[in-house]
Nucleic acid binder design. Structure first.
Lengths: 192, 192
DNA sequence: CGGGCCTTTGACTGGTTTCAACTTCTGTGG
DNA sequence: CCACAGAAGTTGAAACCAGTCAAAGGCCCG
């Protein structure tokens, strides 16, 4: 159950047996069925989730009812509503499972406790966050500069495994274009 | 010279006299004239900068020569090219001064040294980064969902002080729209 | 005072969205 | 296991928002 987690952690920091034990005691295993929510808009975030198996997504619904997918999280990725987690305010995002999934959950208190008992995790989460931040900057840049077709090409290159696993309109939502546009782009690409 | 820095730090963590001393020894004061570069695309990042006074910007130039402003950094803000800083690769971004500015620079080694000698800064930078991350998510969301006019209205509400201090085409660049569009939007808004 | 950059304005273009209809796929219950 | 309802994807036509290109005016700074 914890294989992917420790693999993920050890890519960034060195941890002792003791620290591994602390992790095992703080992370809560949880299975999620396809379509099941981990977090719903308006609820307060309780968990930061690590995905051992399966695929989740986080997304927001804006005033006009438009859906925007903020993140896909396949095995080996972390996911939460950072805003809600750090402020304690109700979540703006929804998080649910695209596939049946197995998660390891860290509660907000568990998070603090982990920092206290194994301070090396301050470093881990900082490094983790730095990478996420850079990735997000990339995405913003791409979204502003690229055409819809280029955005899609980038996406299938960057996340070939995800393309296969999610419905097409989810990809459109992630890219910030309409499902119709994406359909047309794919058609055009196929014709060449 | 260090007032804003410690004010900024103490908003997030508690530090001792000793830790304050360490900071004073590691941060390097530097003045930048208007238009002067702190970092140029292609160079390797040496510094993370805290702005004591003045106003900086970071931006990228894409293949087609289009400029995109990633960040404005007035007094009390941090700025660097995170990608270059964490990978050691040449920077993708340019950073320069919009106004004459006074900075406090932390070198990459200084950064590591600070972490070692005052580990509480792991926490500080993690918290700092969490906020930046949430802000960036907001910006991405706005950029995808909002119209050009809404983006501009959001901007003047979120950064009223910056609006006054930067040329209009810089704001357009930050918002990912053309200077012409912004000009028309402003005209339209004025007419009502 | 003059040159160059910034901003404005106009006409035109074009990529994407919107709306609507139709087809295909999928999952659930009889 | 089939049938069928709803979801997902496709296609077309029309509308629109913002971009592009070009030119003119304004303003700041040397």
């Amino acid at each position: 159950m914890f294989e992917k987690l420790f693999e993920n952690i050890r890519k960034k920091i060195v941890i002792t047996e003791r620290e591994e034990e602390i992790c095992r005691s703080l992370f809560i295993p949880k299975k999620l069925r396809k379509r099941q929510y981990l977090l719903q808009q308006g609820d307060v975030t309780k968990y930061t989730a690590f995905v051992e198996k399966g695929l989740l997504r986080s997304y927001i619904i804006d005033d006009k009812g438009a859906e925007l997918i903020m993140q896909f999280a396949p095995e080996g990725w972390w996911i939460n509503d950072m805003y809600s987690a750090i402020t304690g305010e109700p979540a703006e995002q929804n998080i649910d499972a695209i596939e049946d999934s197995e998660l390891l959950l860290l509660t907000t208190q568990g998070y603090e406790q982990l920092m206290q008992e194994a301070p090396v995790f301050e470093r881990f989460f900082r490094l983790q966050l730095q990478n996420s931040f850079v990735a997000l900057q990339r995405r913003l840049k791409g979204n502003i500069i690229l055409t819809a077709e280029e955005k899609y090409k980038n996406f299938i290159q960057a996340y070939p495994n995800i393309v296969q696993r999610v419905p097409q309109h989810n990809i459109a939502s992630f890219l910030g274009i309409t499902p119709e546009s994406l359909s047309r782009i794919r058609k055009q690409m196929a014709e060449r």
